[in-house]
Design a protein around this nucleic acid. Sequence first.
DNA 1: ATGAAAGCGCTAACAG
DNA 2: CTGTTAGCGCTTTCAT
Lengths: 341, 341
Amino acid sequence: MVAKPQTPSIRMVAERAGVSVATVSNVLNGKTSVSPDFAERVTRAVRELGYVVDIGASRLRSGKAALVGVVVPDLANSMFASFVSTLEHAARQGGFDIVVVSARNDPAEEADRLSNIRSWRPAGLIVIPCDGALAERLPEGHAIPTVVADRIPDIAGFDLVAVDNGPAAGKIARHLGETGARTGLVVGTSLSISNVRERWEGVLAAGGSCAFEMLEVGFDAPDHLAPLAERLVGAARPDALFALDHTTSLALYRLVGELGLRIPQDIAYASFDEMEWMRLVAPPLTAVRQPVEAMAEEAWTLLSKRMAGDHGASITRRLTCAVEMRGSTGPREASRRSEAA
Amino acid sequence: MVAKPQTPSIRMVAERAGVSVATVSNVLNGKTSVSPDFAERVTRAVRELGYVVDIGASRLRSGKAALVGVVVPDLANSMFASFVSTLEHAARQGGFDIVVVSARNDPAEEADRLSNIRSWRPAGLIVIPCDGALAERLPEGHAIPTVVADRIPDIAGFDLVAVDNGPAAGKIARHLGETGARTGLVVGTSLSISNVRERWEGVLAAGGSCAFEMLEVGFDAPDHLAPLAERLVGAARPDALFALDHTTSLALYRLVGELGLRIPQDIAYASFDEMEWMRLVAPPLTAVRQPVEAMAEEAWTLLSKRMAGDHGASITRRLTCAVEMRGSTGPREASRRSEAA
DNA sequence: ATGAAAGCGCTAACAG
DNA sequence: CTGTTAGCGCTTTCAT
């Protein structure tokens, strides 16, 4: 029977270096000063053993957690993936790791994850709620520093970072009117999501010469788009379409193609949430680009302050979206790629 | 001074229920049987206090970790995001949470993350290495159950799940020849990545009537595509382009558009890695679709077995890609959307 | 069926 | 500057 390889502990390092465990800890954490000689012996023992601290045990004793929880509605959604990616990097800079959980757009699952994640005793939480009803999913005396991002919850007391949904959507709405649309159909997943709601309200508040109507299609858009198809072939076909989120936009754009409608000649098209492909299709799509990276960085900044002990009043940040007007909303020029075909 | 709200510990639960901490633990873990009366009292105390176990302390004592580490080259890449998303769900089903780290395509960062993640004493690791040289980034006696995915490392002893890169790429190569291409340019990030290498070798092995050449453009493709542009405008312009990964494909497709080349009339176009947008552009792109979800699920299955104590010989799984022939590789029919324009 | 006590790996407090 | 000791929250013997 060979000696089974065991994860080295601080005690093994201490023994090998011929010092006490406290000295090892001091060398590693640099709190108390240690003589160069001892420090060197410890460093070598650490290297030889391939020792890395057990960060869980460390937290247990010190009370300092190096973990933050991240809860998103859907990791497969590239917007949220990008958010998490930026967050992960910012967190690492600060010496934190992240535990990521996806609620899969299911409020019940979100509640479950939110409860479960507390088991890790994270130093903080960053949450993009999957709908407005976050309050009922947090435990009574929720004491973990928490930042909510992207969507506005039904609960105060947390820092919040989101984008200027209303004004950005309003710009699109006015632009559609200015480029000749008189009737517009706005399509989104659900008004129960605050940013979809804000966008729709932004459209309504925009005024302008185009009359808009709103349609909710839910999260599995491809299945729910059938009734919409009828609206697009009938005589009452709107002059313009405005998709309020990426998921919807993808499905809606495909539907428009399947119906053989030409953009922008037959119907103008705009989207909230810009993805790479929107600049590659012909004509390229008018879209609102959200500052996802900036949102993640701001969320991290806010959380850092809270984790550092800031107990000031909760802060709300609204970041500005970029609105990109492109060929899909006219003027009636065909794009290069289309001309070529 | 109000009583500061404190995270409830098992001791508080025990006191409130009027039982010992051992009994609380027994109720929660269901190991030993507990009288209905006591069980009920504990359950209520848990509910009233909003207690959730400290999973770190639990691991410390029991040695059972409920955490697995996931290391990917780039979380912002939608393929990897999708991988992580599927993984996260599978892990949750098994009662595990995941710590996610991104190497940002940087081997040095990967080494750092790989070392750092051991601090969490994870029960297992799932790694998509950012290049082939994984061996030198793992500590000497790496004892954590580990599954490598997507790319083949320079080190044996780990379970591996990847796709049939060579055969799938070969199919594309033959198809390009069959649709009339005599010269083809294959473009990818770097041959140092095993799957890119396998794809290129698959092209070479395919035979067929088209002569291929390979070009490496690195990871920040947009910057490195300039020399490529010259190849595409000169007299020696190839008949076909084949991008070996998503990042490259996105940049390359954009370049083709900017140069005003028509697909497939001026040049045929195919891509390894299928993304949504490839079906939305005109003409839709011929592409190899990787079974990312299946790969993640298989990786989890393999890891589960290892974590359960299976010490059998390491396993390699090759999943089959779907190859979708579309308009971008001819025959010389314009797509519907193009016809309309 | 229940509880007392030990100890996982670590750091903080204190003694020397 | 260094070592000893206690104890974080939990699970696991081992008594009772």
